[in-house]
Amino acid sequence: MARLEVPRPATFVSLTGFMGVGKSRIGRELSRALLLHFVDLDRYIERHTGISIPDIFRHLGEEAFRRMEKEAVKALLAKDFLVLSLGGGTFLDPENRHALLSRGPVVALWARPETILERATRKPGERPLLQVENPLERIRSLLEVRTPIYREAHIHVSTDGRRVEEVVEEIVAKLWAYAKAGRP
């Protein structure tokens, strides 16, 4: 049986950015647009450990979570035909970052701190890093540290005040430009 080749700009795309920028929602729609599988890294870890991310942080600590995250990234890098939505801190790890940048296009999604706070606090208790007295200030300080690292991504797109479809269209167009430029 002949294999049907679907024209697409990439067969492996990672989405990075701070929590609340829309990686999961946009990743799901991007995977549909590109006819690829979708994996949310945090949900993948939860399925493979049987423990929620907040509970991993609460009972095992962030260091244990980062080890699990690194193992999950390694396993998923071996897959193809995938849109991978990373956790907000995944790309910060130099080993993860190098492997992801080498594997295929990495798209960084961006939003203002106020937008992030509004989105990230819709479900109380879901965001362990925001369980502080002033979450907006926490977001700003974390973004200050993370922005130079997120800037290493191949493609950058803002999600502020935009419909998901609009963001996905921009990402697809930028992925085609990236592919036409002959990048891996």
Rank of each mutant, 00 (worst) to 15 (best):
P7T: 15
G87A: 06
Y178D: 10
P135A: 14
R28L: 08
R32L: 10
R32V: 07
G50H: 11
P124Y: 15
R140E: 15
G182C: 07
T49C: 08
E165V: 04
H59P: 00
R112L: 10
E166R: 02
S141F: 08
L143G: 03
A2G: 06
L143N: 03
L60I: 03
V73S: 11
R119S: 12
I53W: 12
R8V: 12
D42I: 01
H59G: 05
R138F: 11
V13C: 02
R32F: 08
S158G: 08
R162Y: 12
E5G: 02
K180L: 13
R112S: 12
T115D: 11
H59M: 04
K123V: 11
L30G: 06
H37E: 15
G88R: 03
V6M: 06
G20F: 01
L60P: 00
R25L: 04
P105A: 11
G182T: 11
L84H: 07
F81L: 04
H156L: 07
T11R: 12
E165A: 12
G104S: 06
Y178W: 15
I149K: 10
H59L: 05
F12Q: 04
R3K: 11
V172W: 13
E165H: 05
A173L: 06
V13F: 05
R66L: 05
F18I: 09
R138H: 09
G27F: 10
M1R: 01
R28Q: 12
T16P: 00
M1G: 10
F65Q: 07
P148S: 12
R127G: 03
Y178A: 06
G88Y: 09
K174E: 14
I26T: 05
A120Q: 03
Y178R: 03
